[in-house]
């Protein structure tokens, strides 16, 4: 930790890791602080250019966090090159924000975490809340001084699940964060989203449907600890010590839920299955359930 945590919010104080979030007021006061880098990560690759938090740098998930050829994230040297270019040092405090209630910001945070970047936080409510609060936005290009970010090999074991891991995980809690229409099999992509090449529709058997947006409060920030506990512990039945896997279509909405489970509710063993439905829905002979119910645990074959 380079920059002190935001302790101003009673809401944050209830979370298991209050330091993972910052408020707009906290961030605005600290813009330009040495050791603090603000990162914007959006669905739209040009949104940053239309106006961003002064001094913030852009990280695009498609063109910068993904490997251009293999369906995977950049490797250690690639991540080091990217962060050096963005002016981020290994011990910097990184605050990420973005559009769509921080979908892509949470996704970027998760990728940063795969590389073990320790101090990475989200701006609660993301870009929209910042703008709604009347805080400064600029189109002025941010200048960053390149750093020497070390080459750290990505460690997928703790936070990321592959298809084989999910098959082995069946019988343990699975959270499907897509829309109800995607879950029950009536469509393969979110309403109003393009079809992205999943051949079959439905969900992974036994997965419970908890659309990601249930974790979002009216102001666009995260719901309170007690509201989140009511959803994920009381309704869904998650318990401390559970091994949990979350998935969506390509892993971005489930990063949002992953953040909630891991950092706000304190579940220690939560993985994001980024292959998600675009992989599972096209894979040969993996079990699929349709309809609104989770479905039976398939027998091994």
């Amino acid at each position: 930790m380079t920059v002190e945590f935001d302790t101003s919010s009673p809401k944050f104080a209830e979370y298991s890791e209050p330091g993972r979030l910052v408020t707009g007021a906290w961030l605005e006061e600290r813009l330009g602080t040495p050791g603090l880098v603000v990162v914007e990560s959006d669905e739209d690759v040009l949104l940053y250019e239309t106006g961003h938090i002064p001094g913030a740098v852009k990280v695009d998930w498609h063109t910068e966090l993904n490997d251009p050829v293999v369906r995977d994230y950049v490797d250690g040297p690639g991540f080091a090159e990217l962060l050096s270019r963005k002016g981020i040092s290994r011990d910097d405090t990184v605050v990420i924000y973005g559009d769509k209630n921080n979908w892509w910001a949470a996704y970027a945070l998760w990728v940063f975490s795969l590389f073990g970047h320790e101090d990475v936080r989200l701006l609660d409510g993301g870009r929209d809340k910042w703008i709604a609060e009347g805080r400064p936005i600029t189109t002025e290009a941010s200048t960053s001084t390149p750093t020497q970010y070390p080459v750290v090999e990505r460690d997928d074991r703790e936070l990321r699940a592959y298809r084989e891991d999910v098959l082995a995980h069946l019988g343990n809690p699975l959270i499907d964060v897509r829309s109800p229409e995607e879950y029950d099999g009536s469509r393969t992509s979110a309403p109003a989203y393009p079809e992205e090449g999943a051949l079959r529709a439905g969900h992974i058997p036994t997965a419970k449907s908890v659309p990601w947006a249930r974790a979002v409060a009216e102001d666009g920030g995260f719901k309170s600890r007690s509201e989140l506990d009511a959803i994920y512990r009381s309704d869904v039945g998650l318990q401390d010590g559970d091994a949990i896997v979350a998935y969506c279509r390509i892993g971005e909405r489930s990063s949002h839920t992953w953040f909630v489970l891991r950092h706000l509710l304190g579940f220690e063993n939560v993985r994001n299955y980024d292959g998600s439905w675009t992989e599972w829905g096209s894979a040969v002979r993996v079990p699929i359930a349709t309809g609104a119910e989770p479905g039976e645990l398939p027998s091994r074959r």
Binding site: V45, H62, T63, P68, P194, E196
Partner: peptide, 13 residues
């Protein structure tokens, strides 16, 4: 490449 193939698909549509 600058925008990503997925995003270009929207323009094709």
């Amino acid at each position: 490449r600058a925008v990503s193939p997925l995003r270009i698909a929207g323009m094709t549509g």
